[in-house]
Amino acid sequence: MKKHAVSYAIIRFQPHVETGEFANIGIVLVAPRASYLDFRLETKRLGRLTSFFDSVEGTTIRGVLKSYHTELKRIRDLAGYTGSGQRRFEFELSDNAEHLFQALTKDREGIIRFSEVRFAMTACPKSKLDELFEYYVRRNFASSIYREGLLEKQVRGFLKLRDIGRNFKPMAFSDGLYSAKFPFVEIVEQEPLMVLKPIYLGQDEPTRILDHGNKWLFTINRLKEKLPPNVVFAVEGPKDSPIRKRAFQEAVDLFRANDIKVVDAGDENALVSAIEQPA
């Protein structure tokens, strides 16, 4: 399959030029030889922007992104066809798309900025645009495994700070057919007394939240006879979206119904209390 050379830039929201802080909010991509110019802009999941740039009103952020989305659509239309099969310009469409892309991504002052232009090869520019958006804006690399790795580092820091981390070691348990490794198992006089497992339950979809929660519930129930009596889940849930929060709460309720203690992974005091005062 023929591959196309594409150029793309990351669209950034930078309300405070003085600090240089920004957040990725979209991607604009051009494939000149394929006469393709398109973009994707985040206009719905704005929790990250409103919490990070807390000095900017949420209504202001939404207004800026809505207006810019309209402007990007106008520019995209300029690079395309009228709908009647006739080009809007007499010169080559590929030139038009590339020139518009270069003008759009030119460095200038303002709340909306662009990264440096980057390059890639792809057989499908639209799929590449979606892929780049999911990576740079939605951060799909931040899977539950990745996020749980970050939670493990956070919990390890808490334990070290309270000088209780020395009793916790990674340890695997198995019933002969099924096995699982836990990053924190409290061992006293060579006897495992507690399992502490950080779990990320902030996935993009409610189904994925419940699936991941059920995976660890199955693991605990399957290995119940092999595990120490105390099991603690340090969880992180979604920060927005009522439906995702409902799924998260359902997963937490299932944990507790199965005698698993649940604490907020970000609450150091609650975490330490659960360790020092096991059920």
Rank of each mutant, 00 (worst) to 15 (best):
R147V: 02
G149W: 01
E152C: 11
Q154W: 06
V155I: 03
V155C: 02
G157I: 01
G157Y: 10
L159P: 06
K160M: 12
L161Y: 13
R162L: 00
N167Y: 15
F168S: 02
F168G: 00
A172C: 05
A172I: 08
S174P: 00
D175Y: 01
D175M: 08
L177A: 14
S179P: 04
A180H: 12
F182K: 00
F182W: 06
V185Y: 05
I187T: 09
I187S: 02
Q190F: 12
P192Q: 07
M194V: 01
K197A: 12
P198H: 06
I199W: 03
G202Q: 07
T207N: 13
D211T: 13
H212W: 02
H212S: 11
G213W: 04
N214V: 10
N214R: 14
T219K: 07
T219C: 09
L223N: 08
K224L: 12
K224I: 14
E225C: 09
E225F: 10
L227Q: 05
P229K: 05
P229S: 00
P229A: 01
N230M: 13
V231N: 05
F233I: 11
E236M: 10
G237Q: 02
G237S: 06
G237D: 02
S241L: 12
P242W: 00
P242M: 00
A247V: 05
A247Y: 04
A247T: 04
F248K: 03
F248M: 02
Q249P: 05
Q249A: 09
Q249W: 06
Q249T: 13
A251W: 10
F255Q: 06
F255S: 03
R256A: 05
R256L: 08
A257D: 12
A257R: 13
N258I: 07
D259I: 04
K261H: 15
V263H: 09
V263E: 05
